[in-house]
Design a protein around this nucleic acid. Sequence first.
DNA 1: GTCTATATATCGATAGAC
DNA 2: GTCTATCGATATATAGAC
Lengths: 199, 199
Amino acid sequence: MSRSTGLTTADEIRQVALVQFANGGYEGTSMRQIADGVGIRAASLYNHFGSKEEMLWDLTSSALESLTLVCREALDELPDTPTASERLDAFVRAHVKFHIENSDQAQLVNGQMSSLSRQHRRQAVAQRDKYQDELAAILADGVASGEFDLPDERLVLFAILQMGTAVATWYRPSGRLGVDEVCDVYAELAQTIATGRRP
Amino acid sequence: MSRSTGLTTADEIRQVALVQFANGGYEGTSMRQIADGVGIRAASLYNHFGSKEEMLWDLTSSALESLTLVCREALDELPDTPTASERLDAFVRAHVKFHIENSDQAQLVNGQMSSLSRQHRRQAVAQRDKYQDELAAILADGVASGEFDLPDERLVLFAILQMGTAVATWYRPSGRLGVDEVCDVYAELAQTIATGRRP
DNA sequence: GTCTATATATCGATAGAC
DNA sequence: GTCTATCGATATATAGAC
């Protein structure tokens, strides 16, 4: 290990490829560019990943797993029998926080999934749908309990998800607002949309 | 003109390239693929566009112009001295309608602008910012008049724009809702966010 | 304005020495 | 597990005949 980080070479490759795929796009990034970023030759990448597409799948799959995990953890940390509003608040904060703090993973999932193979894309879409179902269940429960009043359940689902997803494209740590402040605003917007009034 | 459409060859190229850039990405689309779609050889494309990047710039620029135009027209058609709420309603409807009916142009602007040259990207960003400023002005006026009550002016701007932008990625004509129904819902959501209560 | 032919560069991926 | 060398395919773009 002559390259001074504590990471394995495979993890170094993941780190570099994630940034380059997210910023330059999968098709716009060459194996040689990735290898340059790691400090090895392109041929050596194939000792760690079978193909370029396998690298994209590895990164996409783990990004989706991380996103699902942090949002589920946020819900699990709620006190017993939380209201739908409390669950919505926790979910949106976790969703937005992830998209701020892991913007490369977020942009990969949002922009590069079409470059996956048919089979991997199918799996990724299923994984993403399962994530969205968590929020869909919260909205449905809130409607059933009378807490929420939605013009359209499916469109509100998309609206809340996409508001938060887009944060990954514009948030800069040097900007006007900190992470928690942005999460506060989006949590409030989600409540407003779901209940029809400010929380 | 042996290829049976009323379009010039340049416009046929624009039509094909727009679809392929929007779906497969700029870097993922080759000049040969575009030429195949038109029914000519790749070399012939250079009789109409100086380079591949020039094609992307042509398409990006005209997409941004169209978007700006339809939203400005929607505002111009309002009766004299409209309220901020009326202007917000008109803007959001036009924004969402454009993203449904011109989803390829919308996805090009949203996903492929990073493939433009430095100079063209600078121009495109400026053009997009000018468009966003139209909504920003509506929100600012509504705050000044007391019609709107926003947790954060800039974040609400992004939230409203991105809700509508994302429609281009999921709307299908064969789906559950028609164009006007989707516009209705998003116009209502925007009012809810801006005023703090259902319209 | 389209064609064939080609220039030049780079792509993902493999073989085999070390 | 990294390296050099290279394969075969394909990329953007140009030259010049028709």
